[in-house]
Nucleic acid binder design. Sequence first.
DNA 1: TGGATTTGACCGCC
DNA 2: GGCGGTCAAATCCA
Length: 429
Amino acid sequence: MHVLAPHLLAPPFLALRAASGLGYYRDHRSRGRIIGGGETGVMDEVLSRIGEGFRLAGELMDELPATNDPAYLAARCHAIAHAYGAAARVLEDAATGQPPLGGGEAGAGGYVHPQRPPPAPLDLLRMSFPAPEDARSPLLFLGTAGPPPPPNHHHHHQLGRGPHPHQWLGAAPSDAYGAGAGTSSGGPVRRLAPSSSSSRSSPPSPVLPRQGRRRRESGEKNVTVTVAAQPTGNTELPPDDGYTWRKYGQKDILGSRYPRSYYRCTHKNYYGCEAKKKVQRRDEDPFTYEVTYCGGHSCLTSTTPLLTLPNTTGAAAAAASFTSSPTAATTSAAAVLGGRPDLVVAPVVVEPPPPHQLGILNYSWMSSSPTNLGVGLAGEASTCSNNTAAAARDTDYPVLDLADVMFNSGSSGGSTMDDIFSSHDRRDS
DNA sequence: TGGATTTGACCGCC
DNA sequence: GGCGGTCAAATCCA
């Protein structure tokens, strides 16, 4: 049974932060994704929102089997709807020529426009939750209004650190070429001087056997997706998936040109969230990454609005299209995405998608050949070990490939929860 | 000063 | 024994 997450108890406070553009959104703002209302900024914002919504949907899917608390589920649904609603509003603004979330910074994330009252629900799409047992159903959740501040939209702290505040953040820069080149992104450029392992590990202290270093658990649910590098800015950065991750390791993998980076949920300590992911650049296509998610998030990093959500009318037809056929989905998605033909929404086949993590979508940015990315979502049985997108490609059910959407949701960073519960997280590591 | 990343070492599984 | 995953001290940065 589900235990009410702490964040559900704090909405007023969080909402206030959201409305004021404080906290969470600080980095989001600095990130400049809506700079000058440029289209790129708009789309970044849109993708971020959609990614958030999708992520939440995936989480919900994961929780459904074990949760029967109507109130909780309703709150989750609202959060999802709000995320998509925020995206719709940004697109509406773009379509009408309004400066997207202008100086107001999208109400910090596009959820609450400081200068405008929340528009009425758009009913753009209708959510569709396949029954848990029907995990093979294509999914896409789109809803309406409201603001759930993607927790991540506070974005990585490193955002502010690097020289490229407008870059997509997400995985560490070193993912690109490993060895922590640190030149590709906002990530810190460290160790100019070989601090050397000697300094660190030097006091050849008596090697005390470490306890508790355990390996992956069998039965752990994994999902591997292949995603393109960030469409804008530094393409050597893997796209962000909206979660807040903390890198805890990097490893050169035998047979791979690029190192694999390991991340775990930033909120591991506070929520005991065991979500992890591995990011590895593909040898055959350096501009794509294989991201393997291990374990689901239990942290529910998205918070604020759950208890302050305005009405959510479910949404409409477009969503239905998404769930019916790739073609329809593409069309609908295109419409939803503000008529951007360059935002390719293509059908993707995936392995039996574990009910969880369905919030992951693959995309291709302005790609004339959306499928050449080998996008795919693959479920993997018991290990958090290697997986291949190839497997995903051999499967048989369609899932949307929303342009960029999912993984560029904007950042994993600096986290909302970190701001609020930083002290707790300190138990880290 | 706090929080995140880097990176060599450690450890478990195959 | 090798490889992959994780730990944790050192380091970096805002």
